[in-house]
């Protein structure tokens, strides 16, 4: 797990677009590869697009509806909730 490629958020502005729009996420070892992967995954390499990539852990997001103390600062990163896992019955206790 420790060697997992980080997650990146991808923003693309089309040829005639006014602004960059979030199109999805992907994994890449660094920003340069994230841009290349974004070309391959999200634009199928259309030309004339502009791509921004931001590592997901650097994105801070508002809480959509709930407010207040439920959200500790550490939870303001969208993509890293404490891992919650339910182990299927077949494998027994872990």
């Amino acid at each position: 797990m420790k060697n997992e490629w980080p997650l990146w958020e991808i923003f693309i502005r089309g040829q005639h677009g006014m602004s960059h729009r979030h199109v999805g996420s992907l994994h890449a070892p660094d920003a340069e590869m994230a841009i290349k992967n974004a070309r391959d995954v999200y634009t199928r390499r259309n030309e004339g697009v502009s791509i921004w990539v931001v590592e997901a852990r650097h994105i801070a997001a508002s809480s959509p509806s709930d407010k207040g103390p439920l959200y500790e600062p550490s939870e303001s990163k969208v993509y890293r909730h404490p891992t919650f896992f339910d182990i299927p019955d077949e494998v027994g206790a872990m």
């Binding site: 994994h27 890449a28 290349k36 992967n37 391959d40 995954v41 199928r44 390499r45």
Partner: peptide
């Protein structure tokens, strides 16, 4: 080796 490479190689 990884999904992103799979997609890129196919392109």
């Amino acid at each position: 080796p990884v999904l992103e490479e799979d997609i890129a190689l196919a392109n």
